[in-house]
């Protein structure tokens, strides 16, 4: 036990010397994994922008396993990093390791997903985008564009997933303010192009060629791209006959917006280093109580 402590102390002091000489902050980042398109881009951005802020980033990919994440965080604690960033794989099971970090006086910042701990003081803050805000932005744009009068078809993400629930919630909250706005059909397209196309085809039949429908809201761009194809094959004009708004702002939807097939997309940023690093560096210089959630702003992009 004591030997362990001595070794840990030695590691801490040696890494403190290195950090001291480089006069840079050392930050450990435990990432969930590398699934999908968005997360690898997020990881790459964090690593690329670290040097801009004089941060020595220690990156650990947990391959989707919580025990890997716990091991990585404990390694960061043993190394005596200045701060730890966690993109948690699940919400529960973090109390113990966060307690260890607190005892080592290393501040912890959450990015992306939330954790569920009794003692909220175990982490400084969560810095992430707000799925609910994305839904609200899309809803607000649509309300403005349709002057508060619009029948909407909705392409949901994977049933039960956090982005699907939150985006739907935010969107619904806004259109509830407008009596003439209503979601007339909603279905899950599983966040895929194929799914979006399949669902929109069925909507086209069940609403008699989208008669009276003024907008399509998709929880991601891929589904919206599928919906655009389905509408074109049915002889409809997406972007003109029907307003098309979705979330993500991937390159393909940019092309579609430029071509007039889609109208708006809310950006889910993967370039978030510029939002995360300043918060952490500022806190390290001047430790104080922060809000428990710092929202990374979402922007809505249109053709203009």
């Amino acid at each position: 036990m004591s030997l362990k402590k001595i070794i840990a102390a030695a590691i801490v002091s040696s890494s403190a010397i290195i950090a001291g000489t480089a006069s840079a902050q050392t930050i450990g980042f435990s990432q969930v994994g590398s699934e999908g398109d968005w997360r690898p881009a997020f990881s790459a951005n964090m690593q690329e922008t670290a040097s801009d802020y004089g941060v020595d980033l220690k990156f650990a990919n947990a391959q989707g396993k919580q025990e890997e994440q716990l091991r990585a965080v404990r390694a960061f604690i043993a190394q005596g990093v200045d701060a730890i960033i966690i993109a948690p794989v699940v919400v529960t099971g973090w109390d113990q390791v966060l307690q260890e970090a607190k005892e080592a006086e290393i501040p912890v910042f959450l990015v992306d997903r939330d954790v569920d701990v009794e003692d909220k003081s175990l982490y400084v803050t969560r810095i992430s985008a707000d799925f609910n805000l994305e839904g609200r932005l899309a809803g607000a744009w649509l309300a403005a564009e349709s002057l508060g009068d619009c029948k909407i078809v909705e392409l949901q993400g994977t049933t039960g997933s956090a982005p699907a629930i939150e985006r739907n919630g935010g969107f619904q909250a806004v259109i509830d303010q407008f009596p003439a706005m209503e979601i007339v059909a909603t279905q899950s397209g599983d966040f895929t192009t194929e799914g979006g196309k399949r669902v929109m085809e069925a909507f086209i039949k069940s609403t008699n060629n989208l008669e009276g429908i003024c907008a399509s809201f998709a929880h991601n761009d891929n589904m919206q791209l599928g919906a655009i194809q389905a509408m074109k094959e049915a002889g409809l004009n997406p972007g003109e006959d029907v307003l098309m708004v979705s979330v993500d702002y991937v390159p393909a939807i940019m092309d579609a917006i430029a071509a007039g097939d889609a109208n708006a997309s809310v950006e889910l940023r993967s370039a978030v280093g510029e939002f995360i690093y300043p918060v952490i560096l500022d806190y390290l210089e001047n430790p104080r109580e922060l809000d428990k959630w710092i929202v990374i702003p979402s922007d809505l992009h249109t053709a203009n």
């Binding site: 999908g36 599983d190 966040f191 895929t192 192009t193 194929e194 799914g195 196309k197 891929n222 791209l225 599928g226 194809q229 393909a252």
Partner: peptide, 8 residues
């Protein structure tokens, strides 16, 4: 779908 989407 005019696209290759191996994941899904």
């Amino acid at each position: 779908t005019h696209t290759s989407d191996p994941v899904s």
